[in-house]
Design a protein around this nucleic acid. Structure first.
Length: 587
RNA sequence: GGUCUCGUGGUGUAGCGGCCUAACAUGCGGCCCUGUCAAGGCCGAGAUCGCGGGUUCGAAUCCCGUCGGGACCGCCA
């Protein structure tokens, strides 16, 4: 038996017990006579005291011990002497007086320190030695939190009558969505499996199969460029329910997360219960994005009416082109430096704006790039409508509605970060519903499906399909939290005729439809129940609950932003023999 | 595909035309030290400044290219 207790679980109540611990040396403090090791395991850190009355051979052995060596310590747990407690440690009231020290394995000097989170090494260094980096208390905590969240989900859904079913990782290419990761077939030259972008089709087929309520902690794969909140492989709580309407799904998921929050992250506050529900249109107008951060105000304000007759050319030309004038009011930002404003203008341009007019409201009057073009009555009306006071900065966007919204939505988040407007312990869950079914592609001048082709349009909008496609809404919904899309779902099509029409609208030929989706259409002919579901992203959720800035910190072995596994150095070249077996040749 | 930004001892940073024979912290090695907990004190080793080219009397520093990282835009049905 290697150990009787975990390092991190020892408390004053263990005093007097003989214990055996095993773990890593987190830190050593050698005072010449007495010496201390902080011994670490997954549960935490405890102080081990080496007294000079131990046998000389053991003291010699102990003198060589360094950080990250793996030790087994046999000793007596003891309440620390009066005044020697360390309130910063959970185990700070206790220490283990060593009687025997066994080196289970020495360690090379690690490439970086894991006993401090100050001055973190370069991330690729951390990723290369991920097995060391994960020893960090912070990352260990993230892994444990992730486990708790997934366990809670499993238990909750089991309680609600769901069953967990695994679906294949090797499936069929669905090139209509993101790019697929392909797996060449050895047995069928020139043919490929694809890794699933989500188990979408499979879970729908499980509903056809009568599984009624399914879930899966599902790995999904998408071959698109990475971001701080996007990995090429990621995990979703994939769930699907039969005989449900939209709100049945939303209520289930809202119930799950609302119940889970205090259990897994008690320091987090729920912004609102029940969760707010916005239409896609409303959320875009008010927050400039379909994944709003509700933890702070600074909503977008439409001032087109007030400035309709503005003499400012920038506004005039935007309005002539059929655009709008909107603004946000940043508190206490009137004194921003020219340099900061220039930087901010660049941010605005990155969202498609041509410039960024602004007004700084100061005690001496309004200042700013466009100040002289504003008439007195316009200023008065502006202040009235926006509630602007002295010290505030009004930032405008005048452009096509979509660009104005997007720009101000982006700037709103910029101010959130700069002015620290969002409570980090708040979880502002909300629903976004009533998404448009089609999006107009300016480039190709055609209507394109906004979702995957299995999403159900609102039945009452069916007649508008051919006459007014822009007005058709879908039975799709997103769960958002703190500015992230944390889940996405829909009521699905379960009728063959509607599904067929969808594929045709997407521009697929009858032959393509049969080849790619014949199995779905056929399944719908054999008694498909009405069904719908949702897929909350686990990585993003854990990231938010762990207060991490990106999802790599909550994934055990993530890829870097360029999709490389820098630890194993993948992707990598393979043996010519392997290529030959797969019938692959490079030109 | 694009924009911005960063590559300096093991690690994290400073230096941004000559004071650089490259500084600081930490880690590492040695010595001292019986109660520390980011232990402390003294001594020491360790970087031709990502790579290639150019400008210059002189380049870590300026320019061009290239490789690698990060943030964002496009993309993510």
């Amino acid at each position: 038996m290697y150990r009787t207790h975990l390092c991190g679980e020892l408390r004053a109540s263990h005093a007097g017990q003989t214990v055996t611990l095993a773990g890593w040396v987190n830190r050593r403090r050698d005072h010449g006579g007495v010496a201390f090791f902080d011994l670490r395991d997954r549960a935490g850190i405890v102080q081990v005291t080496i007294n000079p009355d131990l046998p000389t051979e053991m003291l010699d052995l102990v003198a060589d011990v360094r950080n990250e060596w793996v030790l087994q310590i046999e000793g007596v747990a003891q309440k620390r002497p009066e005044g020697m407690e360390n309130p910063k440690m959970e185990t700070g009231e206790v220490e283990v007086i060593a009687r025997n020290v066994i080196v289970l394995n020495p360690s090379r000097t690690p490439p970086f320190m894991v006993n401090t989170d100050n001055d973190l090494p370069d991330e690729n260094m951390r990723l290369k030695y991920r097995y060391i980096d994960l020893r960090r208390e912070r990352l260990t905590r993230n892994m444990v939190l992730r486990h708790k969240i997934v366990k809670y989900m499993r238990d909750y859904l089991d309680e609600k009558g769901f069953i967990e079913i695994e679906t294949p990782i090797m499936f069929k290419a669905t090139p209509e969505g993101a790019r697929d990761y392909l797996v060449p077939s050895r047995i069928y030259p020139g043919q490929f499996y694809a890794l699933p972008q989500s188990p979408q089709q499979l879970k729908q087929l499980l509903m056809v199969a009568g599984m009624d309520r399914y879930f899966q902690i599902a790995r999904c794969f998408r071959d698109e460029d990475l971001r701080g909140d996007r990995q090429p492989e990621f995990t979703q709580l994939d769930l699907e329910m039969s005989f449900v309407q939209r709100d049945d799904v939303l209520d289930l998921v809202e119930g799950l997360f609302t119940a889970m929050l205090p259990e897994v992250a008690p320091h987090k506050k729920l912004f609102s219960s029940p969760w707010p529900k916005f239409s896609y249109k409303e959320v875009l107008e008010r927050f400039g994005t379909d994944k709003p951060d509700l933890r702070f105000g600074m909503e977008l304000i439409d001032v087109t009416d007030i400035l309709a007759k503005s003499e400012f050319k920038v506004f005039q030309s935007a309005l002539e082109a059929g655009g709008v004038i909107k603004c946000i009011v940043a508190p206490k930002s009137a004194e921003m430096s020219r340099k900061e404003l220039d930087a901010l203008t660049e941010v605005a341009k990155s969202f498609g704006a041509k410039g960024m007019p602004y007004l700084a409201v100061t005690a001496e009057g309004v200042k700013g790039s466009a100040a002289k073009f504003f008439k007195e009555e316009e200023l008065a009306a502006l202040k009235e409508k926006t509630g602007t006071g002295v010290g505030d900065l009004i930032v405008f966007a005048s452009d096509a509605r979509a660009i104005a919204n997007k720009t101000l939505g982006g700037l709103r988040l910029w101010f959130r970060d700069k002015l620290d407007l969002a409570d980090k312990n708040m979880m502002a869950f909300a629903w976004v519903v009533d998404f448009p079914f089609f999006a107009f592609n300016e480039e190709t001048q055609t209507w394109e499906s906004e979702h995957h082709p299995f999403t159900m349009p609102k039945m009452e909008d069916l007649p508008k399909f051919d006459t007014d496609p822009g007005a058709v809404l879908s039975d799709a919904y997103d769960m958002v939290c703190n500015g992230y899309e944390t889940a996405s779902g829909s009521i699905r099509i379960h009728r063959r005729d509607i599904q067929m029409k969808m594929f045709q609208l997407l521009g697929l030929s009858d032959e393509d439809i049969q080849k790619k989706f014949g199995h779905m259409l056929e399944a719908f002919e054999y008694g498909a129940p009405p069904h719908g579901g949702m897929a909350p992203g686990i990585d993003r959720l854990v990231m938010l609950l762990a207060d991490e800035p990106n999802i790599r910190e909550v994934i055990a072995f993530p890829k870097n932003q360029n999709g490389r596994d820098v630890m194993a150095d993948a992707p990598s070249e393979v043996e010519p023999k392997q290529l030959k077996e797969l019938h692959i040749k490079f030109s």
